[in-house]
Computed example of a mutant assay.
Amino acid sequence: MRGSADQNFSGRLVDEGMITLRKRIHEMNMIERNYEPPSDWMDWEKRYYTKYDSIICDALGVLQTQLMNTRPSFALGAMALVAISVPTSSALVFFHLVQLAKTVLAGVPPS
């Protein structure tokens, strides 16, 4: 007997379908708006609105190429470093904001 995970190819088919669905929804929204960005966006956002998908694909292609041309241990190490440093720096910023809020609420000027 086949398990339930085998019937949907371990979720890969669903993930690939969702990417295609999101891309089609984005394209339909652009067509409905005649490729015009929303009026409340800034000028730089309006400039990149129609080229956004190709810019992201190019950037990820460059990243993938660079990772494929490096040793696997170096690529995994770099990804681990980023995965560890982002939450650490976020926690540090949060800690400083909490300390600032405490000093402001206590009426003591920050040192």
Rank of each mutant, 00 (worst) to 15 (best):
S4V: 14
Q99K: 11
Y35I: 07
N69A: 14
V82W: 06
L100D: 06
G107L: 14
T20E: 15
V86S: 01
T103D: 14
P37L: 08
L76Y: 06
I25W: 11
L63Y: 02
V82I: 00
E45C: 05
S54I: 00
R33I: 09
S90H: 03
V108W: 03
P109R: 15
E16W: 01
V14M: 09
R22Q: 13
A75P: 03
D53S: 02
T20I: 09
H26E: 12
L97M: 13
V108K: 13
G61N: 10
M30L: 12
P109G: 11
N8T: 05
M68Y: 09
R24P: 01
W44R: 02
G107P: 02
V93T: 10
L21N: 01
P37M: 00
A101F: 14
Q66T: 09
P38H: 07
L100A: 13
V82C: 05
T65F: 04
D6T: 08
V98R: 01
P87N: 05
A91E: 04
V14T: 11
D43E: 09
K23R: 15
Q7K: 10
E27G: 10
R24H: 11
T20S: 14
D40N: 10
D40R: 01
M1F: 11
V62T: 07
A83H: 01
M28N: 14
K51Q: 03
W41K: 02
Q99M: 12
T50L: 08
R2H: 12
S4H: 14
L105C: 15
G17P: 00
N69Q: 09
N8S: 09
M18S: 10
G77H: 03
G17Y: 00
H26T: 12
F74L: 05
A5E: 11
K102M: 11
L76I: 10
I19S: 00
A75E: 06
H26K: 15
V104A: 15
M1N: 15
Q66C: 01
V98K: 02
T88E: 01
I84E: 02
T88M: 08
S85F: 04
Q66D: 04
C57T: 13
Q7C: 08
I84P: 02
V14S: 08
P87R: 07
G77D: 01
L92F: 09
I31W: 03
T103P: 08
W44M: 01
G3C: 13
F94P: 01
P72A: 09
S85G: 08
I56K: 04
